[in-house]
Amino acid sequence: MTDKTQVAETQHENAALLPPVDVIEDANGITLYADLPGVPKDKLSLQIEADTLTIEGDMLLNTPEDLKASHAEVGLPRYRRAFTLSKELDSEKVSAEFRDGVLKLRIPKAAHAQARKIAIQAA
């Protein structure tokens, strides 16, 4: 799984934050956790096209109308990050959970790519 988020964004209005992720691989697949605070469930979009997984989310903060920002560390209202999935991953069977701004994605390995123990027979 390779990170291929574009460093130089061509369109400024599309500029987005890079959500931090944890990627853990075990014998049966990959688990990805991403932090997307401020994104409600219906504003999160997950897309798999060819071998590219794209995570996108729009923040929705209920700010008062007359709010004047005085200090901002989160300066953009959008997250985006894309990953390339390798061939042994089964993109048809991806499952996702999203709770309190944390996305958990499970991408299983295709059956033929799962680790198997090979029994050694005595000669």
């Binding site: 799984m1 944890d22 853990i24």
Partner: peptide
């Protein structure tokens, strides 16, 4: 997050 035994952590960016 819990890391199962014999799992590889490829990316660990979250606090």
């Amino acid at each position: 997050e819990d890391v199962p035994e014999q799992a590889a952590v490829h990316t660990d960016e979250r606090f």
